[in-house]
């Protein structure tokens, strides 16, 4: 996990479920073969209804239809992000697209756990709802040790909830490295 995450924001609404993050038809691709793996970046968030994709205007796909990766780095969302299916392909697709962190007011349990245990994206909880404040394309800086998110255009800084116990796993890289360091596995 980096200490500083910066880049453009991609803003979504509430209850973005894993079918929207990566539609089920795309779950057939290999997550390791390079030619197939990159499809997850192309189709990341392709299930979000067009008018909800890239708020406030909508109509902005996370990844351009002809591209393999996204121009955005941080997803800003409302509540219950990642609800629905347990597919690990969801946080993986965000990572392949180039997303490094999600900042939402709350998460569905399995998405959160997958994001952490696989080390795909850092799932931050914001104390305030940022969906109406930040626009898709705005520059964002997350200071991980300080636990803050700065919206560059307005100069405002928002507090993020402490990562708590999962910070150790994120720092280790994934649950395997964490379990090795903790002596649970060899």
């Amino acid at each position: 996990m980096k200490d500083r995450i910066e880049g453009k924001a991609y803003v979504l609404g509430d209850s973005i479920d894993t079918d929207q993050i990566i539609p089920a038809a795309h779950l057939v691709y290999s997550m390791t073969e390079p030619d197939e793996r990159r499809m997850y970046g192309r189709y990341a968030c392709s299930g979000v209804p067009n008018d909800q994709a890239g708020l406030p205007e909508g109509g902005k796909p996370m990844t351009d239809p002809e591209a393999w990766t996204s121009e955005y780095t941080v997803v800003i969302a409302g509540s219950n992000f990642g609800c629905g299916s347990s597919r690990e392909h969801a946080p993986f697709a965000l990572q392949v697209a180039g997303i490094e962190a999600v900042v939402a007011t709350s998460y569905a349990r399995i998405f959160y756990r997958n994001a952490v245990d696989g080390g795909f994206v850092v799932p931050f909880e914001s104390r305030e709802r940022l969906v109406e404040e930040i626009r898709t394309g705005d520059d964002i800086i997350i200071d991980v040790p300080a636990g803050t998110l700065t919206h560059v255009a307005s100069g405002t800084t928002h507090l993020l909830n402490p990562l708590g116990d999962v910070a150790d796993i994120l720092r280790a890289g994934n649950v395997f490295e964490y379990a090795r360091q903790a002596g649970f596995i060899k």
Binding site: M31, G84, S85, S86, R87, E88, I110, R113, N114, D117, G118, N174, V175, F176, A179, F184, I185
Partner: peptide, 30 residues
Amino acid sequence: GTDSHSCTSGAFGMFSTGVGNTDAALIMGT
């Protein structure tokens, strides 16, 4: 189970829940 509806098995008085591939791989090995 690597499926969110793995909670179904709880109807049998057992603990059951869904996990991702990474957690399942950890279980598979340990």
